[in-house]
Simulated scan of single mutants.
Amino acid sequence: MNNAQHQINKSDRGMWLGLLGIVIFSVTLPMTRLAVGTPEAPQMSGVFIALGRAVVAAGLSAVFLLATRAPLPRRQDWRPLAITAGGVVFGFPLFTSIAMRYVEAVHASVIVGVLPLATAAVGALLHRQRPSAGFWGCAALGSALVVAFAMLHSGSGLAINFADLLLLAACLCAAVGYGYGARLSQRMRAEHVICWALVISLPLTLPLALFTWPAAALKATAWWGFAYVAVFSMWLGFFAWYHGLALGGTVRVSQVQLVQPFLSMLFAVPLLGERLDAVTVGFGLAVIATVFIGKKMPVNVPRLREAL
């Protein structure tokens, strides 16, 4: 197999692993909605969900690190690990968990649709990748479609409410965490990146989770939602996601996120009883088309030594 064919196969594996991660992540918003409840029937607090899920995932991570005899991160890796944790252990879970009490999963999923463009921008900056104008055009078009859908579906015109601002802040946090995590995945096992990020966060997440532990009895569905975001969204999903970003390149693989809003909507229908209409399907097909077109656009990826 020549080098060009090897790079193509590596990129394809990265895309498939990235897609697997996104399928896992796409259930996060509906499950968070189950766990947090509504203003009329509140369940867990958003703070407990965000920090408690990190504690559960950190426990699993500690076992995994010991079982795989993971080496300690190098001194130069601690700072990017801390930034990764700030984005994906604290920022994104905290902002989305608080917001999900006040918006439906269908609405939240399209706001989060701006994440691929943010991730691509962070990835291009960190990895010195130079996407073509056509690639950025596809990324911008896909993001514009999901933002337009969010405004249309919300029925509030151009107004942006507080929950939407929290979701946008969550996207920024996730983009930074994804970018730095993908960078670390070039020189660490992808699974070890999220595991170390969770473990080093434990001195903060554990006491805060205990302090915000629910005082009242909760529905079983709330605990099922919490269990999913703790084990899958906060842990296993990152195994596939970071590995996919490392193999296929952050800028290119990040565009798979464009299908996440509409996968989240599909899961929200049976899980939450929310409605999926023809407009949603139409926007979904249009956005998915931009993903595959963008995948064909050239991305200038530097040699590994330069990217690190």
Score class of each variant (00 low, 15 high):
Gly14Glu: 09
Gly14Gln: 00
Gly14Trp: 02
Met15Gly: 04
Met15Phe: 03
Gly18Ile: 09
Leu19Tyr: 02
Leu20Lys: 05
Gly21Thr: 04
Ile22Trp: 02
Val23Glu: 11
Ile24Trp: 02
Ser26Phe: 03
Ser26Lys: 00
Thr28Arg: 12
Met31Ile: 09
Thr32Ser: 15
Thr32Leu: 12
Ala35Ile: 01
Gly37Arg: 06
Thr38Leu: 12
Pro42Trp: 10
Gln43Thr: 06
Gln43Arg: 08
Gln43Phe: 07
Met44Asp: 11
Gly46Ala: 05
Phe48Cys: 11
Ile49Thr: 13
Ile49Trp: 01
Ala50Trp: 05
Ala50Arg: 03
Ala50Val: 05
Leu51Ala: 07
Ala54Pro: 05
Ala57His: 06
Ala57Tyr: 04
Gly59Tyr: 08
Gly59Phe: 06
Leu60Trp: 01
Leu60Ala: 07
Leu60Gly: 03
Ser61His: 09
Ser61Val: 01
Ala62Pro: 08
Leu65Arg: 00
Leu65Pro: 03
Leu66Lys: 15
Ala67Glu: 05
Thr68Gly: 01
Ala70Ser: 09
Leu72Gly: 04
Pro73Ser: 04
Pro73Thr: 07
Arg74Thr: 04
Arg75Asn: 10
Arg75Phe: 02
Arg75Leu: 11
Gln76Gly: 02
Gln76Val: 05
Leu81Gly: 00
Leu81Glu: 01
Ile83Glu: 09
Ile83Val: 04
Thr84Lys: 11
Ala85His: 02
Ala85Pro: 05
Gly86Val: 04
Val89Ile: 10
Val89Leu: 06
Phe90Gly: 06
Phe92His: 05
Phe92Asn: 07
Leu94Glu: 08
Phe95Ala: 13
Phe95Thr: 09
Thr96Lys: 02
Ile98Lys: 11
Ile98Asp: 15
Ile98Gly: 12
Ile98Glu: 15
Glu104Val: 03
Glu104Thr: 08
Glu104Ser: 15
Glu104Leu: 13
His107Glu: 10
Ala108Gly: 13
Ser109Gly: 15
Ile111Met: 12
Ile111His: 03
Val112Met: 15
Val114Ser: 11
Leu115His: 14
Pro116Asp: 14
Ala118Tyr: 14
Thr119Ser: 12
Ala121Arg: 13
